[in-house]
Design a protein around this nucleic acid. Structure first.
Lengths: 196, 196
DNA sequence: CAAACTTTACTTACTGGTTAGTAAGGTGTC
DNA sequence: GACACCTTACTAACCAGTAAGTAAAGTTTG
């Protein structure tokens, strides 16, 4: 009898884990099947067995992000907008603390022009989902009166997404960037700065 | 007699121009000397004659950006902060309209971990200079009363830089991003929206 | 229950293409 | 004839991807 865990082979999942690490630190064009196979202790062709083309691996990576992000969002539907923002911050910190990774949308949109079309489409969908979530935080915050800011929720959500995406990249040259941006976004939203 | 123009050979400059286009559309890791030589109609080794290592080309590119950006900043010292911001917007638009390019700091910080150390140092300096300029706009705007915003000028300048850097990348999936961000940043600075 | 097969998850060994980089030579100009 | 600016011709490394084979586990069938 097959267990649910068999659906995704252990090796298959470990390939995704290693590829994810490589994608967020080096970018899609700057990692190879060699990197993965040597990290995993198998031969090159073994990676091709699980993901025949590099495009297949790239698409699988983004799809996993999308599923994960959807669960992340759903798990926080009951939180206040301010709490949701803090969760977003926690996510951002987690990326940076793990080898100065940047967020997936940052890699995918930066390398966009060189990505195969199937990856571009997945990237579009992923960016849309992240943007929708940021906008919904801004919209709910305004609706319940907990956030006060200029402009529309659509624009404010987009600004938060863009600033944190750019911020994670800039943090590689100065790690203080993230904290400064987190505080500034709270300030622009009219939120009280949490006591240390 | 040598003219001043000979200091930088015509071919040498054209290599930089083509490399710049490739860097801002494809990224440093995703363009090769082949791309340049075929675009220029010369052989591969001719590029190596002018820039022996790819690192040399990369460093030369960033240094040219830095000189160009310094002239850009100096040419606008006399403008009001709001006018300086509009010039920054114009620069941002120019990138996007040219084959959906992104800003150099976006490429350099995203690919940062894979860049040779000499390029990393140049990139650090370049990012610092861009950041300083953004901060100075926010600072002068507050000082002369033309801009009203929450937080410190340092934080607000950094936020503008991060948002526009991220925004140029996100614009590849939705071109309306830039305009939305430009309007939102004006709003957050308490600037009147210019009439269309 | 066991022999016969099919499938899974690899391996070895390879191809053809691209990469940065080099060495040596040619050509025109001051 | 020295120098600037290129060429041809090459190397060694790496890249994604493929073909064929293998060992073990699972499945089917007599």
């Amino acid at each position: 009898m097959k267990t649910a865990a068999d659906a995704k082979t252990d090796t298959s999942k470990r390939i995704l884990d290693i590829a994810e690490e490589l994608l967020l630190t080096r970018g899609y064009n700057a990692f190879s099947y060699q990197h993965i196979s040597s990290a995993l202790g198998v031969r090159n062709a073994a990676i091709h067995y699980h993901y025949p083309k590099k495009t297949d691996l790239g698409v699988a990576l983004i799809q996993r992000y999308r599923r994960r992000f959807q669960r992340f969002v759903e798990a926080q539907l009951a939180l206040t907008p301010a709490q949701q923002l803090e969760q977003y911050y926690t996510l951002t910190d987690a990326y940076f603390e793990r080898d100065q990774q940047i967020c997936p949308s940052g890699i995918l949109t930066t390398e966009y022009q060189t990505l195969p079309e199937e990856m571009q489409q997945e990237a579009n969908a992923f960016v849309d989902e992240m943007r929708d979530w940021a906008v919904s935080i801004a919209a709910r915050g305004r609706a319940d009166g907990s956030m006060r800011y200029a402009g529309t929720p659509e624009a404010m959500g987009l600004l938060m997404l863009a600033a944190l995406q750019g911020g994670l990249q800039l943090a590689r040259t100065d790690q203080a960037v993230i904290d400064v941006l987190k505080i500034q976004i709270r300030a622009l939203l009219g939120l009280d700065v949490p006591l240390p």
